[in-house]
Each structure stands twice: as structure tokens, then as C-alpha cells.
Computed example of a mutant assay.
Amino acid sequence: MARRNKIYEGKAKIIYEGPEAGTIVQYFKDDATAFNAQKKDVIEGKGVLNNRLCEYFMVGLNQIGVPTHFIKRLNMREQLCKSCEIVPLEVIVRNYAAGTMSKRLGLEEGTQLPRPIVEYCYKDDSLGDPLVSEEHIAAFGWASQQDMDDILSLALRVNDFLSGVMYGVGIKLIDFKIEIGRVYDGDYQRLIVADEISPDSCRLWDMETGQKLDKDVFRRDLGNLADAYTEVATRLGVMPKTSTPITKPTLIN
């Protein structure tokens, strides 16, 4: 088997060159990190779950006309994606106060917001991904005004889709973050949802009990992270209900 060229390795994924021009292979690791990688662990099976859940969400978005970089899942840990130029922003959509928003504004976690609030953070681990305004984005040329209009529209459409999907299985979508990529067709540019959508990048609470089913389980030492992600996958039908939430899950193809 030919050695693949690694393009980039992040906290939770490795990106390799794809088999064809304009493609990449995204490999999901079992590494769990929090607080800008100050807290680390390896959760066996986490990468498998995130790969399968990411596939589920990306396929759903593609089906309703929200463009993503996802092409297909290759195996238990890898997916084939379109290569794109990542806009250097984390786009965060908040439906309820939690995490840093609660700390910044003194809001009790779980407080429903008057409407979805979209925030932007500059992607730079060394700076702690600082919160930035549209003025910063325009001034430093990270995205044009047209880009920002399109990014806002994409973020809110993803929010509508994810909120509905989660509501249907008794899960409240508190917030999530996405990344946006630019793809080019000649001189024409369009924006697509890139990176991943998984419990790593969302806050998910059980609607009845408030139990956390996302990476806050790891951040706050609330239990077994693999069990929480397995619960999300089971409710969505990604895993059979008879599966035992263990470290090496059996997934439905």
C-alpha cells in the first residue's frame, strides 16, 4: 500500500492527501482534548463514533441542499472529502447559554436565548481562538462582506437542520461550531461546510434530564465520553439499540 502524504495533524483528526486531485482523506483519532489541549486523553472508539456521526450529519445537510466538503465514508475512521481553503474562523451558533457565553455574560447555563446567536472566533490555537467581531474580520481581510452574509446563512441553515434532528430524538442542541471552506470552479468561488460536525463540536443535552452528551463530559469529568457519544449514535440510528456502549462499537454501514 502506498504511503500517504500527511498534510496536517490536529487535536482530533489527521488530514492526508486524497487519491485524486481536489480531494483529502480525513482520519478521526481517539484523542480527546479540552481547554486548548491543556487536558488530554485517549478515548478508545471515539474516532470511530465521530467519523460515523459526522457522515450522518454531512449526508443529511447535502440532501437538503446545504453544501459540504463530505464525499463518502471510506472505512471506520476515514472519510473522503473535497479539498478546500478554510476560512480562518470558527463559526459558533448558540441557542442556549453555556460555556464561555455564560461566563462572559453572567447567564445561567441552559438559559434559552431570544434567538440563535452567531459568534466568530479567529482560528489560532496559540491565541486561544479569540472571539472577534465582523469589524475585525473585514479589517483583516479574513472574509468579505458577501462571504459573511453567506457564512451566516449557512450557519443558520445548519442550526435548523441539527436542531430538528436532535429534537426528534429527545436531545436539545445547546450550541455548535463549524468551519467554512472555499472551493473554486475556475474564477467562481463558493462556500461550503467543512471540517466536522460531531459531539466534539456540539453541546447536546438530554431534553428530559439535562444529561450532557457531548465533550463537556470529558471537560468536566462527568462520566465516560464513549458512552455519551454512543448514546447519541444509538438515538440517531447510527448504532443498533441492542449494542452495548463499549470502547469498540459495532456500527451500521
Rank of each mutant, 00 (worst) to 15 (best):
I7M: 14
E9Q: 13
I15D: 11
I15Q: 08
Y16N: 08
A21R: 07
T23E: 15
T23C: 11
I24V: 15
F28W: 05
N36D: 15
A37E: 15
Q38W: 03
K40C: 14
G45Q: 03
N50M: 07
R52A: 14
C54G: 15
Y56W: 10
G60Q: 06
I64L: 10
I64S: 09
H69W: 09
H69F: 07
R73M: 08
N75F: 02
R77A: 01
Q79C: 15
L80E: 14
C84F: 01
V87M: 11
P88D: 12
L89W: 03
A97K: 00
A97H: 00
G99M: 01
E109Q: 10
V118T: 13
S126I: 00
L127W: 02
L131K: 01
H136M: 09
W142M: 15
Q146K: 10
L154T: 11
L154Q: 11
L156N: 06
L156E: 05
L162K: 02
M166K: 00
Y167L: 13
E179P: 04
R182T: 07
R190N: 14
V193E: 10
V193G: 06
E196R: 02
E196I: 06
E196V: 07
D206P: 10
T209N: 08
K212H: 10
L213H: 01
L213F: 04
K215C: 06
R220K: 13
E231H: 02
R235I: 14
